[in-house]
Design a protein around this nucleic acid. Structure first.
Lengths: 251, 251
DNA sequence: CGTAGATTTGAAGCTCCTCAACATAAGTGG
DNA sequence: CCACTTATGTTGAGGAGCTTCAAATCTACG
């Protein structure tokens, strides 16, 4: 497990240093991934949230469907992400999750999550930290949507994605694969797919990014960061040492 | 403490039934509130998040300041709310919090919060539930902002506020006091204060709400809920029984 | 009572949306 | 492998919604 480190482990590692025992408990979480095809749903609104998922390969997202039929994407999941944390605290899901590409997912029943958290305080803490990080992502997107126009919103999204992919070594420098349709980018940022298209072209025209097929190449990260006000990376920040359980302490 | 129940206790009660011991531990959290004038800051960006706060009286909010000087309000706090939970997981704050009215706040050092959580699993759980509820609020606002126009956004905000105030018995029916300036409503919903003004007038014209001074009177909650797609109240939903610690269990 | 702050109103302009047609890419079965 | 089909992206035109600026009220408060 240490030799061939999973994306999940690499993700958690950024938050909390785990003991060997914790690491092997954690390894359980994505020990038995199964292949899930593009478009298949991981969970659905109003169904009980009885599993925690880890995404080993591929992309997924969670979304909300309004009464009028419009949809808004809430979370974007990349390899190494834990999925379903937001809803786990509650009895029912309030979102639906779907695979954006074919990928590998492992599902973990909530009872065993509960057990896991009882066994290891540090692992409990790691899950909380992961949840907190996802909340910061959402908060950042709210800030982005509240304050920026179309060009800045898209610039911000691209930088966020690059940053998250680099974290699990899934982006090669300034280039990465982005399986999102323009309609889906619109659902993330609250704009029409037509305007997403125009804005992407505008960004190309300005020499800020290039795209061929689904590959994105950020040509001028500096300028993009300026436009998008992407100076801080709050979800990468240090955890509160006061709340961190001592090393090796078990419940 | 049981006879004269605090707003905080009433808030937590909705999530978790606490034992007598837990309740008195909880009572500590807002035992010694101090008076804080309107406009005073509770915490600031990039400062260590070393306290948890409870709002006993008055209104507050947290906001983000962009590089270009624009501001976005992230959380709106009403009496009974716990403040600073979002940032507590991390070492530093990423938002600034300020009193919207003069009020009463009690601050609780993070070391003692940590102690509290170690002492009582149910209280730990209650705090997590409270954090999860605040995350759902933010997520709902993101959905609101992503999908709705000005009229719906404001309708949604009014319903959210009414709902949260009713929860702590601070709203009398369809009427409540709303200390937000129109500029601040704009900062919450991503619109200019001029347009907030026009939209509020439009809502009055349609007979959906009335306002005199800072008092809001919702005239047609049904219609507002339809406009705002405010059918579900996800932050009021039931907690996951699988994760709920058994009664009386201590660490 | 006067002043600073908040709200309202008007006008002009810009961003973004909608609708629709077209172009290109991706997927499918012969 | 190609024609067919379907999905996705691009382009244009017109219009709705919102912003900005500025001036005119209104309100709060020392």
């Amino acid at each position: 497990m240490l030799s061939q480190e999973s994306h999940l482990a690499r993700n958690i590692d950024r938050h909390v240093t785990l003991s060997g025992g914790d690491a092997s408990l954690l390894a359980e979480l994505d020990a038995h991934p199964r292949r899930v095809p593009r478009g298949s749903e991981l969970w659905q609104t109003q169904r009980p949230s009885d599993h925690l998922y880890t995404l080993c390969r591929g992309w997924a997202c969670s979304y909300h469907r309004s009464a009028n039929g419009s949809q808004q994407i809430l979370d974007l999941f990349v390899p190494g992400d834990i999925m379903g944390l937001r809803d786990l605290t509650y009895h029912d899901h309030t979102s639906t999750a779907v695979m954006l590409t074919t990928g590998q997912v492992s599902a973990y029943p909530v009872e065993r999550v509960s057990e896991l958290m009882r066994c290891s305080r540090r692992l409990d803490w790691a899950l909380q930290a992961s949840a907190a990080r996802q909340e910061r992502l959402i908060t950042q997107r709210l800030i982005n949507v509240l304050s920026h126009d179309a060009v800045s919103r898209i610039a911000h999204l691209m930088l966020e994605v690059q940053h998250r992919l680099q974290r699990v070594d899934a982006a090669s420098g300034d280039q990465f694969y982005l399986p999102l349709l323009q309609r889906q980018i619109g659902m993330l940022l609250g704009m029409s797919s037509v305007h997403v298209s125009r804005t992407l072209i505008e960004l190309s025209r300005r020499g800020l990014l290039e795209r061929s097929r689904r590959r994105i190449h950020l040509l001028d990260v500096e300028a993009l960061a300026r436009i998008a006000d992407f100076t801080t990376f709050p979800y990468e920040a240090g955890l509160n040492p006061e709340l961190l359980p001592e090393d090796g302490m078990q419940r």
